[in-house]
């Protein structure tokens, strides 16, 4: 990575930024087309998504969006997971989470003390939220596979508790991701420099410290 050799690695290296924004678009496609599919047989009786919220003007096109988006979501997600593991980014950014730190951050947030002076360090709540949403994304792929191919992957469906349970889990996973999105986007707008950092790459990291975290290339 020539950026680091110049003047220190960026907080968000270019590949990561690309993956982030690809994921942002694909997630929107998957969520809103999923709402279109949901409406044909609601899971929560009495609740359906208005046409404003649905991608695809009726079920066939919501399905086509969903079954097209799934490839981009899965491939982008796999590259992201590989990148996070191989570069050590997950280990560096998301761990460890200390319970005391978690409580302190929640207390601080409730007092409207949102500390974002140093963008390069995630607080405990951020770490937890990122881990939860990454796991939710993986879970969506797994439950999605079960719903898509309940005969070919009948063992998976049985492990999830049956076809209808898999559907409910797929819906619940969506709810977790949407919940994350609400918090994530709100915070990004409240602290705009975090949003800018995901566009520009953010501050350059000190040449000394994080470099030794990186595996040999």
């Amino acid at each position: 990575m020539h950026e680091s050799s110049r003047s220190g690695r960026r907080l968000h290296p270019l590949p990561l930024r690309i993956m982030h924004w690809v994921n942002a678009v694909v997630m929107l496609v998957m969520i809103t087309s999923g709402w279109g599919i949901y409406d044909d047989d609601v899971i929560i009786r009495g609740f359906h998504f208005g046409s404003f919220w649905r991608l695809g003007d009726w079920a066939a096109w919501s399905l086509n969006w969903h079954f097209a988006g799934m490839w981009f979501l899965a491939i982008n997600g796999l590259i992201y997971l590989g990148y996070g593991l191989v570069t050590g980014r997950f280990r560096e950014k998301l761990f460890p989470i200390r319970p005391a730190e978690l409580v302190q951050t929640v207390v601080d947030t409730l007092h409207f003390r949102i500390a974002h002076d140093d963008l390069t360090i995630y607080n405990a709540v951020q770490k937890l939220l990122y881990i939860v949403v990454i796991l939710a994304g993986i879970a969506q792929v797994v439950t999605g596979l079960a719903i898509w191919k309940p005969v070919q992957f009948s063992g998976l469906v049985a492990a999830l508790g049956g076809f209808q349970t898999a559907r409910v889990l797929h819906f619940a996973g969506m709810a977790v991701i949407v919940g994350f999105l609400v918090v994530h986007v709100t915070l990004a707008l409240l602290v705009p420099k975090t949003l800018l950092a995901m566009l520009s790459g953010g501050p350059r990291l000190g040449v000394s410290a994080p470099d030794k975290e990186e595996p040999a290339r």
Binding site: I37, Y38, D40, D41, I43, A59, L63, P150, F163, Q164, R167
Partner: peptide, 10 residues
């Protein structure tokens, strides 16, 4: 067997 509709019901 299970009848599974594209709409989601079965």
């Amino acid at each position: 067997i299970k009848h599974i509709c594209v709409e989601g019901w079965s």
